[in-house]
Each structure stands twice: as structure tokens, then as C-alpha cells.
Amino acid sequence: MYQVNEIILYGSEGICKIDNMMTRHVNGQPIEYYVLKPIKSESSTIYVPTLNEELTKKMKRVLSYQEIIDLIHFIPDSELLWIDNDNLRKERYKGILRDGNRQEIMQLIRTLYLHQLKLKEEGKKFHASDDKFYKDAERILYEEFAYVLNISEEEVVPFICQEIDVKEIA
């Protein structure tokens, strides 16, 4: 169970603060909710029923500094997640973003980045759905990295590159 004032990652909404816990009555039954405030949009409010397993699974503890460093060092040896079949690839990538496993999200970013480079070399265009997955994965992961590392999102890629001593990764 999460606590009020705790900072979490909530699905594709990104970093949120648990602003409150509240009970609402629905059909005469009391239902307890987490009240989440996205840090990028404090005017937004997300209500997550505490007993709704599907929605509470989207709530993840924010990575620690050391977990981020470990994840960054995982990048060069990570397996690529490319799937040639468009439909299977879309389903797999949707699942990765939905599940929120940061290691898989990092692998997804690396896979799509390298695929995009390959296509550029061949004079081909990046598929629109792959571009969307790439941008969504970056947004989710880089927002969390920026928050934990106390840097801007624009500084995340240079930080990663410096940490693994490469010129460019994504």
C-alpha cells in the first residue's frame, strides 16, 4: 500500500504525487481511492481505486539513483526487442509500455533507436507507430530519470551517454 505524499510512477501518466486518500460512495458502497497529482500537470487529478488491481498495477515506486545507474549500465549489453511482424511488434511494445518494466522500456528505446539509424542509412523512413512507441518510451523513462537525478529531461540523454562513455545513444 502506498502512502500520502509518496512519489510514484503511474503508467503513461508519468511521475505523480499521492496527494490524498479518499472514500467515495458508489451505489451505496464505500470505495477508497488514491488521489494522484501528476507533477507535470498539477491541475490534473487521477483517482485510482485502491482495490482495483488492474489500475493499482500501474502504480510503481520511483527508481532510486543507484537503480537508474544500474539500468544505464545495462544498456550496452541489453537484448534488442525488434519483431519483424508489425502487428506482433505493436502488441509487444504496447505491453511493455503498459507494464512499465523500466528495463524493457530501456531495451525498447535502444531497439527503436538502432532500427531508426539503420533505416536512415538505407534511405528509408521510420514507421509512424514505431516513432510513437519510441517517443512514449522516452517520455516515460526520461521523466523519471530527470526527477530522480534532479536534472532536466533534456539533460537525461547526455547524462546516460556520459555514464556509459558513448557519444550518442538515443
Results as ranks from 00 to 15, higher is better:
residue 73 H to E: 02
residue 21 M to H: 09
residue 10 Y to E: 02
residue 70 D to Q: 05
residue 85 N to F: 01
residue 28 G to D: 05
residue 42 E to I: 14
residue 123 G to L: 06
residue 47 Y to G: 01
residue 97 L to W: 13
residue 33 Y to W: 08
residue 62 V to A: 03
residue 54 E to F: 01
residue 38 P to C: 03
residue 89 R to V: 03
residue 72 I to A: 11
residue 95 G to Y: 09
residue 81 L to F: 07
residue 28 G to W: 11
residue 10 Y to F: 13
residue 8 I to M: 02
residue 72 I to G: 06
residue 30 P to G: 06
residue 47 Y to K: 07
residue 80 L to F: 09
residue 33 Y to R: 01
residue 106 M to Y: 14
residue 117 L to R: 10
residue 64 S to P: 06
residue 61 R to I: 15
residue 68 I to A: 01
residue 100 G to V: 07
residue 31 I to H: 03
residue 28 G to S: 10
residue 119 L to N: 00
residue 78 S to E: 15
residue 48 V to D: 05
residue 62 V to H: 06
residue 39 I to C: 05
residue 98 R to E: 12
residue 50 T to Q: 12
residue 75 I to W: 13
residue 15 I to T: 15
residue 87 N to M: 04
residue 11 G to F: 00
residue 82 W to V: 09
residue 110 R to M: 10
residue 100 G to T: 03
residue 99 D to E: 12
residue 42 E to R: 14
residue 11 G to D: 02
residue 48 V to C: 01
residue 67 E to V: 00
residue 60 K to V: 06
residue 41 S to K: 04
residue 18 I to K: 09
residue 36 L to Y: 09
residue 8 I to P: 00
residue 16 C to K: 13
residue 83 I to E: 04
residue 53 E to L: 02
residue 45 T to D: 10
residue 82 W to K: 11
residue 75 I to Q: 13
residue 100 G to N: 14
